[in-house]
């Protein structure tokens, strides 16, 4: 059975890109906003979550915190267009597994995921 990944990004083309990139090795579930991601993460079991943090004010961070409250162990990869936010977010958020910035190097992302959860 394939491992399950939850992809959360409000941009449909990006969700599609991640889905297309990862669907060969993993089962990818899409969420278009933080609320939906939280709902799915509570209801279902995921091996990894890829979360977009959109705004400099940290939209999405709240969702990560809430997911952490319910599932303390699931690895979370943050994906953002703001490189400068990296340090801030890693400090603020406990147990963030990785931080990737857009544009995404798909090969590197795949390696990161493999190292975290295997195939």
């Amino acid at each position: 059975m394939k491992k399950r990944i939850l992809v959360c990004d409000d941009e449909e083309p990006i969700r599609l890109l991640l889905n297309e990139s990862l669907q060969d090795s993993y089962e990818v579930v899409e969420a278009s906003n933080g609320r939906e991601a939280l709902r799915l993460a509570t209801k279902e079991q995921f091996d990894l979550i890829i979360m977009d943090i959109k705004m400099p004010d940290g939209h999405g961070l709240e969702a990560i915190e809430r997911i952490r409250e319910r599932n303390g162990t699931v690895p979370i990869i943050i994906c953002s267009a703001y490189r400068a936010m990296e340090d801030d977010i890693v400090v603020k958020t406990s147990n963030v597994a990785a931080f990737i910035t857009k544009p995404i190097d798909i090969k590197a992302l795949k390696t990161k995921i493999f190292n975290l959860i295997g195939a």
Binding site: K54, P103, I104
Partner: peptide, 16 residues
């Protein structure tokens, strides 16, 4: 933000 998102899309799909 605004440009990196479409760039991600372009770059990502080009890689695929």
């Amino acid at each position: 933000h605004e440009i990196r998102n479409p760039l991600t899309v372009i770059d990502g799909f080009a890689q695929l």
